[in-house]
Simulated scan of single mutants.
Amino acid sequence: MQDPAINMAKFTHESIEDQEEEELQEEVLDFAPASLDDSLPEVEDPLREINLGTEEDPRPTFISALLKEPLKSELIALLQEFRDCFAWYYHEMPGLDRELVEHKLPIKEGYLPVK
């Protein structure tokens, strides 16, 4: 009869070899698509418009339509409480340099912008 320690050493050695073979197997990779998809991601929440202003001076903003009560009511109350912190028009931001708030795309002369 063989020594149990030898059998255990042989079993351990075989287990390590099996693990190494599994790790060395080639990984199958998918190729990148030929063109990018410009559609919106499917995970985007549907939105619900809420007015933080008045009928005469609307201040529309959007929240997730998936919000459940009481979180939805709490969020709307919070937005209404701090509605004076938001600016909808440039004249509501006195002293703000237009260089900071205007978005520009520098495009070389003779070239068209590419989407």
Rank of each mutant, 00 (worst) to 15 (best):
A32E: 12
A32W: 06
A32V: 08
P33G: 08
L36N: 12
L36K: 13
D38F: 15
L40P: 08
L40N: 10
L40Y: 14
L40H: 10
P41G: 15
P41Y: 03
V43S: 15
V43H: 13
E44L: 14
P46W: 05
P46T: 09
R48W: 09
R48L: 15
E49P: 01
E49L: 11
N51Y: 04
N51Q: 09
G53S: 12
G53W: 03
T54W: 06
E55Q: 11
D57C: 05
P58S: 04
P58I: 01
P58M: 02
P58L: 03
T61S: 12
T61F: 10
F62Y: 15
S64A: 09
A65R: 05
L66C: 05
L67R: 06
L67Q: 04
K68Q: 14
E69L: 08
P70V: 08
P70I: 09
K72Q: 14
K72H: 06
K72S: 13
E74V: 01
E74R: 13
I76M: 02
A77Q: 12
L78R: 11
L78C: 08
L79R: 01
Q80A: 04
E81H: 14
E81S: 07
E81C: 00
R83T: 12
W88D: 09
Y89C: 02
Y90L: 07
E92P: 03
M93V: 11
M93T: 14
L96R: 13
D97L: 03
V101Y: 02
V101F: 04
E102C: 06
H103Y: 10
K104D: 00
K104E: 10
K104A: 05
K108F: 00
E109D: 13
G110E: 02
Y111N: 01
Y111W: 02
L112Y: 08
